[in-house]
């Protein structure tokens, strides 16, 4: 059987050529097995994440919060549109109502309001769900639109 020096993954071996071919085959098989395992795990992960009617979400809607009294006293993240003329500022504290066009909820927040905060702006408030209809926010983020349209307004 012909034998020679072979390099396998950086190491040198003095082996019959036939042996080397089977070693290379083995390392390729191992690669296929590992790949299949990783892809399988990913598929399971994706399946479990999207199962049950896509209930994966970053923030809850106002209706979801209002309909779930088990959330009272817990920390929540709620998103909705600021209802015009509901913003009341007293000192550093701001109170306003947000809606998902079905239900509404009152949000209190003490801290610097984002520069873009205004009527009809989508906000996401993170804080404690105090009682039905009231969220005490610790952080407030405004959500930007995903539609950009030209309008004849050129103001800074």
């Amino acid at each position: 059987m012909p034998a020679a020096y072979h390099t396998l993954q950086g190491r040198h071996f003095f082996l019959p050529t036939q042996e080397v071919i089977s070693l290379e085959k083995r390392s390729k098989n191992r690669l296929v097995v590992v790949t299949v395992i990783i892809l399988g795990l990913l598929a399971i992960l994706l399946y479990s994440a999207t199962r049950g009617g896509n209930n994966l979400s970053y923030f809850k809607t106002v209706t979801e919060i209002n309909n779930d009294s088990t959330l009272i006293g817990k920390s929540v993240r709620v998103g909705g549109k600021v209802i015009p003329k509901t913003i009341v500022k007293s000192g550093t504290k701001a109170t306003f109502k947000i809606t998902d066009s079905k239900n509404q909820i009152t949000v209190t927040y003490s801290g610097a309001l984002p520069a873009t905060f205004a009527d009809n702006i989508q906000v996401i408030a993170e804080g404690t769900y105090k009682k039905k209809g009231l969220v005490e926010a610790e952080s407030l983020v405004t959500k930007c639109p995903s539609k950009y349209e030209n309008q004849p307004i050129v103001t800074k």
């Binding site: 896509n54 979400s57 970053y58 809607t61 959500k143 930007c144 995903s146 539609k147």
Partner: peptide
């Protein structure tokens, strides 16, 4: 795209 109600927009 798969997670609903996210902050980052999809334009």
């Amino acid at each position: 795209r798969l997670i609903k109600n996210v902050l980052h927009p999809v334009v």
